[in-house]
Design a protein around this nucleic acid. Structure first.
Length: 513
DNA sequence: TAACCTTTGAAGCCA
DNA sequence: TGGCTTCAAAGGTTA
């Protein structure tokens, strides 16, 4: 099996994160049919990526060519990339016209799902794309032919930067705009972002190019996805009267890409609007995805990162750490950053610690007794156990942790096998289909956390998790599955809020239903 | 108006 | 190197 030659050593994401997440009904069967061992999973993911890069994806090949043959003229390479993208679209991976978060990537009808593109098993999702968009087309803008009134004419030296000369991946260069202080200039004539016409100047990058990874200097960040070209955090806006420097946002990971795609579908199906609830469902559905499906998103995420790295060679995730404080990427000294980091941490500590009240689980039990932590603490969220000045629900029965994470009859012990036995049947990875009589709001508030990344497991559990021992989702007993009718409960938000406020109410409510 | 919530994954920092 | 922390999206909710 050919090995993936991903530049960043990307292993297609967390292979060990895969959970054989059983779903209800069809999903369950589906998952069971696709039940592989973890090794199989890892192999499969690798192979999938290899295939996608080596065989299936001319685009990937173009990327490699672009990276390897820097001496070639850009137009040729870019056109080559375009061809690759087109082929890839034909391959079924990119079918929908656009990416919600990347509205300027919208493509003409030929890329609509109903186009001549034949259905392919390789497609990422079987869902009907919301708003006619598909997040997986986030890389499509490389294909300028599809939306550019003019031929691609990126400067050949886009990657110019003082003291830094880094060749852009021409195959990817059509996607990200370039930071003003970053990698060179893009002529304002690059009007191959159709939606830029809809943007005011506020949404424009100093280069004249809006980009999802660069948030706008003015206006509301979430004002409109179409305005997500640039953004400068309010703190920075206040602080600076100088030319706004954009904040380059992190590239989306596989799950984020998936969320972007599926969010609308979940909203439509469940009439949910609250992202927190939606994300819970999406998280379950993510685990319910087949390896192939997930592999697509990992692949996309990998390319996103690759592209991002090439377009913002000096950008670092650290730049956005404490983003609101740091302001301009890379300008903050390490010491300052550390100070503010500590400040923020202390602030959070203070918020969780009433004067004289018990501390957070972390402080109370320490790292050696993480199993005694409440769920939120394990997920690095606000402690719910000692938040209310000591009014602490039972850690194993009433707080979220009991429902949220695999319950441990004996908190001080970690019985992975026991978890498996108890939690082989997780809640539905998503809401059920809309009910016939009641509004199809089915907020599955069972905050089971199959393996929250923040669930920093105790060493043994962590190790076990890496071995896949915890792959079995932290299913919860059915009686803890809280489903609320949106209308009857004043909407899902009410449900979520109630759940949040209740802490222990989740189980109680569900039991009474 | 800003922070929170909620998810997973990536990346940076620290001991 | 492992563990911890932050950020990425999203939009309703809350303070």
């Amino acid at each position: 099996m050919p090995q993936l030659s991903s530049g960043g050593g990307d292993d297609l994401g967390a292979n060990d994160e895969m959970i054989s997440f059983k779903d209800e009904g069809e999903q369950e069967e589906k998952i069971q049919e696709n039940a592989f061992t973890e090794r199989d999973l890892a192999d499969l993911k690798s192979s999938l990526v290899n295939e996608s890069e080596i065989n299936q994806s001319p685009n990937a090949a173009a990327v490699r060519r672009g990276q390897q043959s820097e001496q070639r003229g850009f137009p040729d390479k870019h056109r080559e990339h375009l061809d690759g993208v087109s082929k890839q679209q034909d391959g079924g991976m990119y079918k929908s016209p656009a990416y919600p978060g990347y509205p300027f990537l919208m493509l003409p009808d030929p890329y609509l799902p109903n186009s001549s593109v034949s259905p392919s098993s390789n497609k990422v999702s079987v869902v009907q794309q919301s708003h006619g968009m598909h997040p997986l087309t986030s890389l499509l803008p490389y294909s300028n032919d599809h939306f550019s009134p003019s031929p691609p004419h990126l400067p050949t030296d886009m990657s110019q930067k003082t003291g830094v000369h880094r060749h852009q991946s021409q195959d990817l260069s059509g996607y990200y705009s370039l930071p003003p202080g970053g990698v060179g200039q893009i002529t304002p004539s690059m009007s191959w972002f159709p939606h830029s016409l809809m943007l005011g100047t506020s949404g424009m990058h100093p280069t004249g190019i809006p980009h999802p990874a660069i948030v706008p200097p003015t206006g509301k960040q979430d004002h409109d996805q179409y305005d997500r070209g640039m953004y400068v955090k309010p703190q920075e806006a206040k602080r600076e009267k100088e030319p706004k420097k954009p904040v380059i946002k992190k590239p989306l990971n596989a799950f984020m890409l998936y969320m972007k795609e599926m969010r609308a579908k979940v909203i439509a199906e469940c009439t949910l609007k609250e992202s927190a609830a939606i994300n819970q469902i999406l998280g379950r559905r993510w685990h319910a995805l087949t390896r192939e499906e997930q592999a697509k998103y990992y692949e996309l995420a990998r390319k996103e990162r690759q592209l991002h790295m090439q377009l913002y060679p000096t950008w670092s995730a650290r730049d956005n750490y404490e983003a609101g404080l740091s302001g301009v990427a890379g300008e903050k000294s390490k010491a300052d950053w550390g100070k503010k980091k500590r400040r923020k941490r202390e602030k959070q500590q203070d918020s969780n610690t009433d004067p004289g009240s018990p501390k957070k689980c972390r402080a109370r039990f320490g790292l050696n007794q993480q199993t005694d932590w409440c769920g939120p603490c394990r997920r690095k969220k606000k402690c719910i156990r000692y938040l209310q000045g000591g009014g602490c629900p039972s850690p194993t029965s009433s707080d979220l942790s009991a429902i949220d994470s695999p319950p441990s009859p004996s908190p001080s012990r970690h019985h992975h096998h026991h978890h498996r036995l108890l939690y082989q049947r997780p809640p539905s990875p998503g809401c059920s289909p809309p009910l016939s009589t009641t509004p199809p709001t089915c907020l599955s508030l069972s905050p089971h956390t199959p393996r929250s990344h923040a669930t920093r497991l105790p060493p043994e559990q962590s190790a076990a998790s890496k071995r896949g021992d915890l792959r079995q989702p932290a299913a919860k007993p059915a009686h803890t599955h809280l489903e609320l009718s949106g209308r009857q409960n004043n909407g899902s938000s009410t449900a979520l809020s109630a759940a949040k406020a209740a802490g222990l109410s989740l189980k109680v409510l569900s039991e009474t239903q």
